[in-house]
Amino acid sequence: MKTTRFDTREHILTTGEQLCVQRGFHAMGLIELLKVAGVPKGSFYHYFASKEAFGVAMLERYFAHYHQQLRGYLDDHQGDQRQRVLDYYHQSLQTFCQESSFAGCLSVKLSAEVCDLSEPMRIALDAGSKAIIATLTSALQKAQQQQTLQRVSNAEDVAQNIYMLWLGASLLSKISRDVRPLENAWQQINLMLPAPL
């Protein structure tokens, strides 16, 4: 069966993401990527002008999937948006515990590695993070409209703090090979999103 242009590009991106989560962006060589993906060198350069352009496309794809998953989860339930946000992070914690994987997500893996070395990749990370924070902000604003969340002065600040807390806890769990930082983050998120009195 012949693969389409999209299939080949997607396959390279998927393979690259898996390798980057394991090794990091700079440690992943193009020869290794092409060998694991089973595609010729010409195919890579047909889709991506450089390794950096590949990195940008990989991050954009990663955040698009992450954002779609988060929005789908929050939009799937028309009830209590506060509880839905809490459920999302609780589910993320449970998934992390079940998989016993400290490899971490792509944004955790690459944030410190590429931000000082690649401005296009830093911009992709920034844009992806801002989209997640905007979706969380919208959910918190809905929760306030529903009166399921105590009034906060700035929903965007709270959403940013939740994202920063989870990102930092994910990194610390990776460093320590211990789930406790994420468990502590989950408890703090609960405190940050109090139900009305």
Rank of each mutant, 00 (worst) to 15 (best):
I162H: 02
L30F: 06
Q68L: 12
L106R: 06
Q81S: 11
E119R: 12
E52I: 01
L117G: 11
K2F: 11
L136W: 03
L125I: 07
Y47P: 00
D7V: 07
G29Q: 06
E119L: 13
L34A: 08
G128T: 07
A37I: 06
N161F: 10
L165S: 05
S129V: 13
Q94H: 14
R180S: 10
K2W: 12
V158D: 01
F25A: 03
Q81K: 14
F44K: 01
Q91P: 00
Q68F: 09
F48Q: 00
A143C: 08
M1D: 11
R122C: 05
K174A: 10
R84I: 10
Q78W: 11
G104N: 08
C105E: 08
P181N: 05
I132T: 09
R84Y: 02
A37H: 04
L149N: 06
S100E: 15
F96Y: 09
L117T: 13
I132K: 05
R61C: 01
K109N: 03
Q98D: 14
G24C: 03
F25L: 06
D75Y: 09
C115E: 09
G72V: 02
R122D: 01
K174R: 12
S153L: 15
G128D: 02
I189F: 05
F102N: 05
Q146H: 11
V158P: 07
A112G: 14
R5L: 06
A27D: 15
Q187A: 14
R151W: 12
A195R: 13
H65E: 11
E52G: 00
M192H: 07
Q145H: 11
I31K: 14
L74V: 11
P181L: 04
D116E: 12
K2R: 14
E99G: 09
E52V: 02
Q146G: 07
L171W: 12
R177F: 11
E113G: 04
P120E: 03
F96V: 10
L19Y: 08
L93Q: 10
L167H: 15
G38R: 06
Q141D: 11
L149M: 10
V158H: 04
V85H: 07
S107A: 10
F102E: 01
L74K: 05
L165Q: 04
D7Y: 02
G16F: 04
Y62V: 04
I123N: 09
F25K: 03
E32W: 08
S43W: 03
L106C: 07
A27H: 13
K109W: 01
E17Y: 08
Y73P: 08
Y45F: 15
A37Q: 03
Q187M: 14
Q22W: 01
L117C: 00
S118F: 03
I123E: 08
A131F: 02
R151D: 11
L70R: 07
C20F: 10
L136C: 07
D87I: 04
G128H: 05
D76S: 14
Q22N: 11
L197I: 12
H90G: 14
Q94E: 15
D157Q: 15
A195Y: 05
V179F: 06
L70E: 00
A57P: 08
L197K: 15
K41P: 00
D80K: 06
F54D: 04
F54R: 07
